[in-house]
Design a protein around this nucleic acid. Sequence first.
DNA 1: CATTACATGTAAAAGGTTACATGATTCG
DNA 2: CGAATCATGTAACCTTTTACATGTAATG
Lengths: 195, 195
Amino acid sequence: MDVKTCCLGLLCFRDACGYDLKKEFERLFKHFYPAGCGSIYPALANLAEQGLISCQEVPQDGRPDRKVYRITEAGRKSFKAALANASPQHKLRSEFLAMVYFADLMCPDQLKRLLEERRLDLLDAVTNIAQIERSWGPDTPAGARFVAGFGSAMARTAADYIAANQNLLLDRQKASVPSDDTTSGKLSAKLEQRA
Amino acid sequence: MDVKTCCLGLLCFRDACGYDLKKEFERLFKHFYPAGCGSIYPALANLAEQGLISCQEVPQDGRPDRKVYRITEAGRKSFKAALANASPQHKLRSEFLAMVYFADLMCPDQLKRLLEERRLDLLDAVTNIAQIERSWGPDTPAGARFVAGFGSAMARTAADYIAANQNLLLDRQKASVPSDDTTSGKLSAKLEQRA
DNA sequence: CATTACATGTAAAAGGTTACATGATTCG
DNA sequence: CGAATCATGTAACCTTTTACATGTAATG
């Protein structure tokens, strides 16, 4: 399941130009499957070449022609086959966690900033997803809702974990065991202030 | 913060050969920063070339010489500089979530299997991390404990989210809003059975 | 007897990221 | 007046992944 296949999938729902897809990738998809111009445009060109999507150029004034892509029957079939064969990987590459692993070798100030910035980023992600969810009508597919909720839950847990356990890294004298207390909810309180 | 830098960081703690590092990457690191032979061995060769690590070859019978690497002063300095400059990214690329986004286009059986397999994988990750934690002595760095706890909390939240919300995808008639109820704990009950 | 662990690596391919190139329009 | 939005794309670069290559010894 590469960017190309994701584009094909999005085109199953509605016609779109490359820019539209780019926006889609920058909205919800960025939380679990980021992609930029450099991946999307070549992907569309390739899909069109294979006959999986068709293209209609809409002239515009003051801008490049808008190339509106539409999935073909072959494309729809190909996407369903891809879905059936895809291996459902879930890969995390976190330089943040790698850095934290080496916390003992970092200066405390930097470490503190690192944790705080990440926590705020996570809270931003929650707010961002909530905003996306609010923009949805009743016709929004269940898959989108599920994925959004998933991302939101993950980000909240991560933010709470950092808040609850940063002392483990910051207070270097006492060694304690990480807390699992993500049930308190108190720690997400900042959420309401930011939302 | 690439694989090379991670290797350098691990060598700050103790001397190791490529194979040792590979095992380290396959233990805890796989949960947040996976790497294989193909990245590790060239990384070590490169670090040695730059004089950031030194190498002592230990002859063995029936195996290739064991190349034990030790960090140099330059290496230690270089790693701290790398830590100070690194951008703490946290990138997820989840084909699983991408597939689920397109749940409406999948056949229900496959979808159900997809969710169940992922849930079991997540539970395995929790068990796996718990095992690693149990193997640790009191001298284990706080960073490692923090990262392990983080991974465990994430995996548990993900597993619980899937259990609590799969009906959203599976029952196609009624559209409801995803539940945030990861506080119940009931859903992690299977954990004890598997541990 | 087959697989896993040990131990080293290479090399090609695949894939994505980053930066660049272009240019009008609209918003603050 | 500067920045963001709209709209397309290219190309070099960077990294990682995958598969291969080799071979012994212990484990089940």
